[in-house]
Design a protein around this nucleic acid. Structure first.
Lengths: 341, 341
DNA sequence: AGCCGACCTTGGAACGTTTCACAACGGAGG
DNA sequence: CCTCCGTTGTGAAACGTTCCAAGGTCGGCT
């Protein structure tokens, strides 16, 4: 009743177990007639290789995983698509693991993947300094950090988030905004901290008043809406005239709620998002956003991971950093801002 | 140099291998002092359980997978989030596998997962009638089809796509539209075929002229834009006054391109999408869409899968069908349509 | 003293593969 | 006729776990 094994196939085809294995792995060593007999037996019994046994014996798993911050953020699925392409070309399967912005869940995935002896792990960590990540790498599982920089003891592929934050804030300053809000959180997420830092650096340079920080619990649309409510609730005189959001999910939520509550965008509130996900351009008011090379990020990460997995000896860790690019759209378009400031 | 095994731990702690196993699996059987010695050895050597060996011996994997049509469609990641919640509560990890709307890739994942002896597979198949799916189930891997109906030999969780298509088309007919386009493809994808069938059924009932079908190669934003170009290119007299898209990705692309090419939505072109993903409401013109209970779909599917996996004997397959719901927004709002038809 | 049970630890079988040294067979060449 | 060789197939070891029957030790009870 339980799944048939090679032993069953061997018995059925009246050959030794080793021969069945050979049919599967080195068919050229088996005579035509025998091979056919074995293949027939396999088909008849519905035999399926047991990957655990294979891997136990052989030591290798032909599998890698991408542990993502949140699969519901299209940014990450785009990165994943890039990585998957590379993995596939190399004959590896890639599993996507949704960390859900939850350190506990992420840690559970890491444990599981290490126990499964995956060939390597791509990860966008909640906390890049988590010591368990370093331990994982030390014990021999190749790890590449994606969308976060890392120290010299690890490969990483990232985009300069401080620069991105600076670009976004500078753009708003150039447009004449002086009261600017930052929407994002929790700060424990590196991307959030860096983008905020970049924005603050731009404001400081311009001698502007400090950011109003609206901290969020997560980086999703619902939290963006909540922030919209808070902003709309402020008296116009004290309300920021622009908001920089830590990602596009927040920005889209903010935009939606702000408009619903009667704020005109960008007239009453200019908005800059981050990631330039596909939906940003299609938003109610097309969203100005900081673009990142998503697929390239994924491809590069997978390539580094494969390099390390294939040649662990003498592997030199690389920290690749790409540059973000500001994409200006109507959500900050200045034409309509004249009457305001 | 290779990863330490229980044997190494046992030697280091001067106990038998069985004792190490007991420390991990039945700590209450081991004396306090011994247990500590073993745990210390584990920590010192950086021992990590070999899941393959465990599974080989124990036969069970504590893992399930959701093979998705396309991870870049937020609809599916929402479904996945629902499923993951249930899996997690049951102590199982869930892997997401991106089929990328590609039958080959999907088949590769299925093979791999079966060989890994996962506890069960959730799948939104490219082709629900693929015989390899049935074979998989017959050989003992529980399978639940998600977002597609299935025959009595399988569990499935779906939403009535024919009804959904009917709702969408009826809505457009009620609003006075007579030349209606359907945007979607390939037709080999069940959801596309059903939604189209539903729409055709509504038109037939109303005695309206048949749909103009714009078949797409994929269900993504880029294809939607392409469809927008084709529509905008038609002379106004022959151009459909409304389009029903097989999903919101297409609808958002169509909307974006139509607006860019000077069509007013809904004035010149009304648009109905499908899935009501979070971004639909935030679109340039908020999108009328056919909503599906995404998370509920995922949760229910995972529950059925677990039930089957836990009690294979006497399991009765269920085909759960939910009802879609039309959500009307500005992309079909009739107020501005007066001057037109 | 002898026995018992409680408690802890041990050693080895089993899981399903892959690999490898070796055996069986036949034909070619000397 | 014997040797050698190439072609096929065999059988057993090994991978790292878990489980189980059995062994050992110790204190207390009869």
């Amino acid at each position: 009743m339980s799944a048939p094994s090679m032993k069953d196939v061997a018995a059925h085809a009246r050959v030794a177990v080793g021969t069945v294995s050979n049919v599967l792995n080195h068919p050229e060593l088996v005579a035509e007639s025998t091979r056919k007999r074995v293949l027939d037996a396999i088909a008849e019994l519905g035999f399926v290789r047991n990957e655990s046994a294979r891997q136990l014996r052989g030591g290798t798993s032909r599998t890698l995983a991408y542990v993502v911050l949140d699969t519901r953020n299209p940014f990450f699925t785009d990165v994943a698509a890039g990585a998957q392409q590379v993995a596939e070309d190399a004959g590896l399967a890639m599993f996507l693991c949704d960390g859900g912005e939850d350190p506990t869940r992420q840690a559970r995935y890491l444990d599981l993947l290490e126990q499964q002896r995956v060939e390597g792990i791509l990860i966008t960590p909640v906390d890049a300094n988590d010591p368990s990540l370093a331990a994982l790498a030390r014990r021999g599982t190749p790890v590449v950090v994606v969308d976060r920089g890392a120290g010299p003891d690890r490969c990483s592929v990232s985009v300069d988030d401080v620069l991105g934050g600076d670009l976004a804030a500078s753009h708003l300053l150039d447009a004449g905004h002086r009261r600017i809000a930052f929407v994002g959180g929790p700060r424990s997420i590196g991307q959030v901290a860096d983008r905020l830092a970049g924005a603050e650096q731009a404001l400081a340079r311009a001698g502007a008043e400090p950011l109003t920080v609206l901290e969020t619990a997560r980086l999703d649309v619902a939290e963006g809406r909540r922030a919209g409510e808070r902003l709309a609730g402020l008296p116009a005189a004290r309300r920021p005239t622009a908001a920089f959001c830590a990602n596009d999910m927040l920005a889209l939520g903010l935009l939606q709620q702000a408009v619903r509550l009667g704020l005109r965008v960008p007239h009453d509130l200019a908005i800059v998002g981050y990631d330039d996900i596909e939906f940003a351009a299609a938003a109610a008011v097309p969203l100005t956003s900081v673009a990142q090379p998503r697929q390239l990020l994924g491809r590069t990460a997978a390539e580094l991971l494969l390099a390390e997995a294939r040649h662990p000896k003498g592997h030199v860790h690389q920290q690749r950093v790409f540059e973000p690019e500001l994409v200006v759209r109507e959500s900050t378009s200045m034409r309509r801002l004249d009457g305001v400031a």
